[in-house]
Write a protein that binds this DNA or RNA. Structure first.
Length: 303
DNA sequence: CGCCAGGCTAGCG
DNA sequence: CGCTAGCATGGC
Protein backbone atom coordinates (compact mmCIF):
# COMPACT_ATOMS: atom_id res chain seq x y z
CA UNK A 1 0.00 0.00 0.00
CA UNK A 2 1.18 3.49 -0.83
CA UNK A 3 0.70 6.11 1.88
CA UNK A 4 0.26 9.86 1.84
CA UNK A 5 -1.70 12.79 3.19
CA UNK A 6 -3.60 15.81 1.95
CA UNK A 7 -3.22 18.97 4.04
CA UNK A 8 -6.70 20.08 5.10
CA UNK A 9 -5.42 23.68 5.16
CA UNK A 10 -5.56 23.47 1.37
CA UNK A 11 -9.26 22.54 1.45
CA UNK A 12 -11.33 25.76 1.14
CA UNK A 13 -13.65 25.93 4.16
CA UNK A 14 -12.12 22.85 5.73
CA UNK A 15 -13.15 19.20 5.91
CA UNK A 16 -15.22 17.18 8.34
CA UNK A 17 -14.71 13.63 7.06
CA UNK A 18 -17.02 12.04 9.63
CA UNK A 19 -19.98 14.19 8.63
CA UNK A 20 -19.18 13.99 4.91
CA UNK A 21 -19.19 10.18 4.91
CA UNK A 22 -21.77 9.45 7.62
CA UNK A 23 -24.47 11.94 6.61
CA UNK A 24 -26.46 9.57 4.43
CA UNK A 25 -25.07 10.71 1.07
CA UNK A 26 -22.51 7.98 0.43
CA UNK A 27 -22.76 4.27 1.06
CA UNK A 28 -19.36 3.53 -0.45
CA UNK A 29 -17.31 3.44 2.75
CA UNK A 30 -17.00 1.01 5.68
CA UNK A 31 -15.34 1.98 8.95
CA UNK A 32 -12.55 -0.35 10.00
CA UNK A 33 -14.05 -0.32 13.51
CA UNK A 34 -17.36 -1.34 11.90
CA UNK A 35 -19.14 1.55 13.60
CA UNK A 36 -20.72 3.45 10.73
CA UNK A 37 -23.98 5.16 11.74
CA UNK A 38 -23.70 4.14 15.37
CA UNK A 39 -23.28 7.78 16.39
CA UNK A 40 -19.70 7.08 17.38
CA UNK A 41 -16.94 9.59 16.74
CA UNK A 42 -14.64 8.67 13.90
CA UNK A 43 -11.57 10.10 15.62
CA UNK A 44 -8.64 8.00 14.37
CA UNK A 45 -11.01 5.53 12.66
CA UNK A 46 -10.17 4.53 9.10
CA UNK A 47 -12.77 4.42 6.34
CA UNK A 48 -12.08 1.93 3.58
CA UNK A 49 -13.54 0.85 0.28
CA UNK A 50 -12.70 -1.07 -2.87
CA UNK A 51 -13.34 0.56 -6.21
CA UNK A 52 -11.76 1.59 -9.49
CA UNK A 53 -9.76 4.69 -8.52
CA UNK A 54 -8.93 5.69 -12.07
CA UNK A 55 -12.61 5.51 -13.05
CA UNK A 56 -13.76 7.24 -9.85
CA UNK A 57 -11.45 10.15 -10.64
CA UNK A 58 -13.49 10.88 -13.77
CA UNK A 59 -16.91 10.05 -12.34
CA UNK A 60 -17.30 6.51 -13.64
CA UNK A 61 -17.78 3.19 -11.84
CA UNK A 62 -15.24 1.12 -13.75
CA UNK A 63 -14.54 -2.49 -13.01
CA UNK A 64 -11.24 -2.25 -11.19
CA UNK A 65 -10.34 -3.50 -7.76
CA UNK A 66 -8.25 -0.88 -6.01
CA UNK A 67 -8.38 -0.39 -2.25
CA UNK A 68 -8.22 2.95 -0.47
CA UNK A 69 -8.32 3.76 3.25
CA UNK A 70 -8.65 7.28 4.64
CA UNK A 71 -8.86 9.03 7.98
CA UNK A 72 -8.74 12.59 9.24
CA UNK A 73 -5.87 13.04 11.63
CA UNK A 74 -3.77 15.98 12.86
CA UNK A 75 -5.18 18.40 10.31
CA UNK A 76 -4.59 16.10 7.38
CA UNK A 77 -6.52 13.60 5.33
CA UNK A 78 -4.30 10.52 5.58
CA UNK A 79 -4.61 7.82 2.94
CA UNK A 80 -3.35 4.32 2.22
CA UNK A 81 -4.07 2.84 -1.19
CA UNK A 82 -2.99 0.31 -3.76
CA UNK A 83 -2.44 3.13 -6.25
CA UNK A 84 -2.49 6.94 -6.10
CA UNK A 85 -5.99 7.84 -4.81
CA UNK A 86 -5.60 11.63 -4.70
CA UNK A 87 -7.43 12.51 -7.94
CA UNK A 88 -10.32 10.20 -6.99
CA UNK A 89 -10.47 11.57 -3.43
CA UNK A 90 -10.47 15.15 -4.68
CA UNK A 91 -13.45 14.35 -6.87
CA UNK A 92 -15.42 12.09 -4.51
CA UNK A 93 -14.98 14.31 -1.43
CA UNK A 94 -15.27 17.50 -3.49
CA UNK A 95 -12.14 18.97 -1.94
CA UNK A 96 -12.13 21.89 -4.41
CA UNK A 97 -15.52 23.19 -3.24
CA UNK A 98 -15.24 26.57 -1.50
CA UNK A 99 -17.64 26.18 1.43
CA UNK A 100 -17.60 29.89 2.28
CA UNK A 101 -18.61 30.81 -1.27
CA UNK A 102 -21.32 28.15 -1.26
CA UNK A 103 -22.68 29.39 2.05
CA UNK A 104 -22.85 32.88 0.60
CA UNK A 105 -25.10 31.61 -2.19
CA UNK A 106 -27.64 29.92 0.10
CA UNK A 107 -30.11 31.74 2.41
CA UNK A 108 -29.10 32.92 5.89
CA UNK A 109 -32.41 32.00 7.47
CA UNK A 110 -32.35 30.39 10.95
CA UNK A 111 -32.67 26.76 9.81
CA UNK A 112 -29.96 26.87 7.13
CA UNK A 113 -27.69 28.96 9.37
CA UNK A 114 -28.05 26.53 12.27
CA UNK A 115 -27.37 23.57 9.97
CA UNK A 116 -24.19 25.10 8.50
CA UNK A 117 -22.96 26.20 11.93
CA UNK A 118 -23.59 22.77 13.46
CA UNK A 119 -21.93 20.72 10.70
CA UNK A 120 -19.38 23.07 9.14
CA UNK A 121 -16.86 21.15 7.06
CA UNK A 122 -19.38 18.65 5.73
CA UNK A 123 -19.02 18.46 1.96
CA UNK A 124 -21.22 16.98 -0.71
CA UNK A 125 -19.91 13.74 -2.21
CA UNK A 126 -19.49 12.82 -5.85
CA UNK A 127 -19.65 9.04 -5.92
CA UNK A 128 -19.59 6.60 -8.88
CA UNK A 129 -22.98 6.61 -10.66
CA UNK A 130 -24.09 2.97 -10.59
CA UNK A 131 -23.07 2.52 -6.96
CA UNK A 132 -25.12 5.62 -6.12
CA UNK A 133 -28.07 4.42 -8.18
CA UNK A 134 -28.17 1.07 -6.35
CA UNK A 135 -27.70 2.70 -2.95
CA UNK A 136 -30.63 5.06 -3.38
CA UNK A 137 -32.94 2.45 -4.90
CA UNK A 138 -32.33 0.63 -1.62
CA UNK A 139 -33.04 3.83 0.33
CA UNK A 140 -36.83 3.75 -0.19
CA UNK A 141 -38.55 3.81 3.22
CA UNK A 142 -35.32 2.89 5.00
CA UNK A 143 -33.20 4.50 7.70
CA UNK A 144 -29.69 5.44 6.68
CA UNK A 145 -28.18 2.86 9.03
CA UNK A 146 -30.08 0.12 7.25
CA UNK A 147 -29.30 1.44 3.77
CA UNK A 148 -25.65 1.18 4.71
CA UNK A 149 -26.26 -2.36 5.94
CA UNK A 150 -28.04 -3.36 2.73
CA UNK A 151 -25.30 -1.98 0.50
CA UNK A 152 -22.72 -3.72 2.67
CA UNK A 153 -24.63 -7.01 2.30
CA UNK A 154 -24.76 -6.55 -1.48
CA UNK A 155 -21.01 -5.90 -1.55
CA UNK A 156 -20.23 -9.00 0.49
CA UNK A 157 -22.51 -11.21 -1.60
CA UNK A 158 -21.81 -9.95 -5.14
CA UNK A 159 -18.97 -7.41 -5.13
CA UNK A 160 -15.36 -8.06 -5.98
CA UNK A 161 -13.36 -9.17 -2.94
CA UNK A 162 -9.96 -7.55 -2.60
CA UNK A 163 -7.52 -8.83 0.00
CA UNK A 164 -4.83 -6.50 1.32
CA UNK A 165 -2.69 -7.96 4.06
CA UNK A 166 -5.03 -9.66 6.51
CA UNK A 167 -8.08 -7.63 5.48
CA UNK A 168 -10.67 -8.37 2.80
CA UNK A 169 -12.52 -5.38 1.33
CA UNK A 170 -15.71 -5.77 -0.70
CA UNK A 171 -16.47 -3.48 -3.62
CA UNK A 172 -20.03 -2.42 -4.39
CA UNK A 173 -21.06 -4.83 -7.17
CA UNK A 174 -20.98 -3.80 -10.80
CA UNK A 175 -24.13 -3.96 -12.93
CA UNK A 176 -22.91 -7.19 -14.49
CA UNK A 177 -22.23 -8.78 -11.13
CA UNK A 178 -25.67 -7.80 -9.80
CA UNK A 179 -27.46 -8.81 -12.99
CA UNK A 180 -26.44 -12.42 -12.30
CA UNK A 181 -28.39 -12.44 -9.02
CA UNK A 182 -31.97 -13.62 -8.56
CA UNK A 183 -34.79 -11.74 -6.91
CA UNK A 184 -34.98 -14.40 -4.19
CA UNK A 185 -31.24 -13.99 -3.50
CA UNK A 186 -31.66 -10.24 -3.07
CA UNK A 187 -34.69 -10.67 -0.83
CA UNK A 188 -32.68 -13.02 1.35
CA UNK A 189 -30.24 -10.14 1.93
CA UNK A 190 -33.09 -8.12 3.40
CA UNK A 191 -33.84 -5.85 0.44
CA UNK A 192 -37.57 -6.56 0.70
CA UNK A 193 -39.68 -5.11 -2.12
CA UNK A 194 -36.61 -3.25 -3.42
CA UNK A 195 -35.09 -6.55 -4.61
CA UNK A 196 -36.75 -6.63 -8.04
CA UNK A 197 -36.03 -2.90 -8.51
CA UNK A 198 -32.29 -3.38 -7.93
CA UNK A 199 -32.20 -6.47 -10.11
CA UNK A 200 -34.08 -4.97 -13.05
CA UNK A 201 -32.05 -1.75 -12.96
CA UNK A 202 -28.81 -3.76 -12.83
CA UNK A 203 -29.96 -5.67 -15.91
CA UNK A 204 -30.83 -2.45 -17.73
CA UNK A 205 -27.38 -1.00 -17.04
CA UNK A 206 -25.69 -4.29 -17.92
CA UNK A 207 -27.62 -4.19 -21.21
CA UNK A 208 -26.25 -0.76 -22.04
CA UNK A 209 -28.60 1.81 -20.48
CA UNK A 210 -26.20 4.41 -19.11
CA UNK A 211 -27.23 6.52 -16.09
CA UNK A 212 -24.46 9.01 -16.87
CA UNK A 213 -26.30 9.99 -20.07
CA UNK A 214 -28.30 12.29 -17.78
CA UNK A 215 -25.23 14.53 -17.47
CA UNK A 216 -25.82 15.98 -20.92
CA UNK A 217 -29.37 17.09 -20.09
CA UNK A 218 -30.86 20.13 -18.40
CA UNK A 219 -31.65 19.49 -14.73
CA UNK A 220 -35.36 18.61 -14.85
CA UNK A 221 -34.92 16.60 -18.03
CA UNK A 222 -32.07 14.73 -16.35
CA UNK A 223 -34.32 13.89 -13.39
CA UNK A 224 -37.04 12.66 -15.72
CA UNK A 225 -34.50 10.62 -17.68
CA UNK A 226 -33.27 8.75 -14.58
CA UNK A 227 -36.80 7.63 -13.71
CA UNK A 228 -36.54 5.15 -16.59
CA UNK A 229 -34.65 2.92 -14.16
CA UNK A 230 -36.87 0.64 -12.10
CA UNK A 231 -37.21 1.75 -8.49
CA UNK A 232 -36.22 5.31 -9.40
CA UNK A 233 -38.85 7.99 -8.91
CA UNK A 234 -38.30 11.74 -8.69
CA UNK A 235 -36.79 11.65 -5.19
CA UNK A 236 -34.26 8.89 -5.85
CA UNK A 237 -33.41 10.51 -9.18
CA UNK A 238 -32.65 13.78 -7.36
CA UNK A 239 -30.31 11.93 -4.98
CA UNK A 240 -28.38 10.38 -7.87
CA UNK A 241 -28.18 13.75 -9.64
CA UNK A 242 -26.92 15.49 -6.48
CA UNK A 243 -24.55 12.89 -5.04
CA UNK A 244 -23.10 11.52 -8.27
CA UNK A 245 -23.90 13.42 -11.46
CA UNK A 246 -22.92 16.97 -10.56
CA UNK A 247 -26.35 18.63 -10.32
CA UNK A 248 -25.74 20.81 -7.26
CA UNK A 249 -29.15 22.46 -7.62
CA UNK A 250 -31.04 19.18 -7.02
CA UNK A 251 -33.10 19.19 -3.80
CA UNK A 252 -34.35 15.67 -3.00
CA UNK A 253 -37.77 15.96 -1.33
CA UNK A 254 -37.56 13.25 1.32
CA UNK A 255 -39.60 13.01 4.51
CA UNK A 256 -37.21 15.26 6.45
CA UNK A 257 -37.14 18.02 3.86
CA UNK A 258 -40.91 17.83 3.42
CA UNK A 259 -41.18 18.28 7.17
CA UNK A 260 -38.82 21.26 7.00
CA UNK A 261 -40.90 22.78 4.21
CA UNK A 262 -44.08 22.36 6.25
CA UNK A 263 -42.61 24.05 9.32
CA UNK A 264 -40.15 26.58 7.85
CA UNK A 265 -41.08 27.23 4.20
CA UNK A 266 -44.84 26.51 3.96
CA UNK A 267 -45.22 28.79 0.93
CA UNK A 268 -42.92 26.43 -0.98
CA UNK A 269 -45.39 23.53 -0.72
CA UNK A 270 -47.01 23.64 -4.16
CA UNK A 271 -48.68 20.23 -4.05
CA UNK A 272 -46.68 18.39 -6.68
CA UNK A 273 -43.07 17.24 -6.50
CA UNK A 274 -42.06 19.24 -9.54
CA UNK A 275 -43.50 22.55 -8.41
CA UNK A 276 -42.48 22.19 -4.77
CA UNK A 277 -39.00 21.28 -5.96
CA UNK A 278 -38.84 24.43 -8.07
CA UNK A 279 -39.96 26.61 -5.16
CA UNK A 280 -37.57 25.22 -2.53
CA UNK A 281 -34.73 25.15 -5.06
CA UNK A 282 -35.24 28.85 -5.66
CA UNK A 283 -35.55 29.51 -1.90
CA UNK A 284 -32.22 27.76 -1.38
CA UNK A 285 -30.47 29.99 -3.89
CA UNK A 286 -30.58 27.85 -7.02
CA UNK A 287 -27.03 26.90 -7.97
CA UNK A 288 -26.04 25.24 -4.67
CA UNK A 289 -29.54 24.49 -3.37
CA UNK A 290 -28.56 20.84 -2.93
CA UNK A 291 -25.80 21.83 -0.52
CA UNK A 292 -28.34 23.62 1.69
CA UNK A 293 -30.64 20.60 1.41
CA UNK A 294 -27.92 18.22 2.57
CA UNK A 295 -26.96 20.38 5.55
CA UNK A 296 -30.61 20.76 6.59
CA UNK A 297 -31.31 17.05 6.09
CA UNK A 298 -28.36 16.03 8.23
CA UNK A 299 -29.12 18.66 10.86
CA UNK A 300 -32.74 17.57 11.26
CA UNK A 301 -31.99 13.85 11.09
CA UNK A 302 -29.31 14.01 13.77
CA UNK A 303 -31.10 16.57 15.91
C1' DC B 1 -48.88 -4.17 19.50
C1' DG B 2 -48.50 0.28 16.24
C1' DC B 3 -45.69 3.49 13.91
C1' DC B 4 -42.04 4.94 10.98
C1' DA B 5 -38.00 5.01 7.82
C1' DG B 6 -33.78 9.74 2.35
C1' DG B 7 -40.60 5.99 -1.91
C1' DC B 8 -41.96 3.42 -5.91
C1' DT B 9 -45.14 0.89 -8.95
C1' DA B 10 -49.43 -0.34 -10.86
C1' DG B 11 -53.98 0.58 -11.43
C1' DC B 12 -57.57 3.46 -10.94
C1' DG B 13 -60.65 7.81 -12.22
C1' DC C 1 -52.51 14.04 -15.57
C1' DG C 2 -53.33 13.15 -10.00
C1' DC C 3 -54.42 9.91 -6.37
C1' DT C 4 -53.89 5.71 -3.56
C1' DA C 5 -53.19 0.63 -1.99
C1' DG C 6 -49.74 -2.36 -1.39
C1' DC C 7 -45.30 -3.38 -0.63
C1' DA C 8 -40.63 -5.81 3.28
C1' DT C 9 -38.13 -5.19 7.15
C1' DG C 10 -36.32 -3.95 11.65
C1' DG C 11 -36.09 -0.73 15.62
C1' DC C 12 -38.40 1.66 19.09
Amino acid sequence: MERGAIDCESVPGGLDLFRTIESGQSYLWRRSDDACYQNVSAEDAWYETALDLEAAAIGEDGSGTDVVRIRQHDGTLEWEATTDPVPALRRMLRLEDDLEAIRTSVPDDPLVTDAFDAHWGMRLVNDPPFATLVSFICSAQMRVERIHGMVTALARAYGTHVTVGDRTIHAIPTANQLAAATEADLRSLGLGYRAPYVLETARMVADGEDPTAARTLEYEAAREHLTRFVGVGEKVADCVLLFSLGFDEAVPLDTWIRSAIASHYPDCDRGTYRETSRAIRERFGGTYAGYAQTYVFHHLRTG
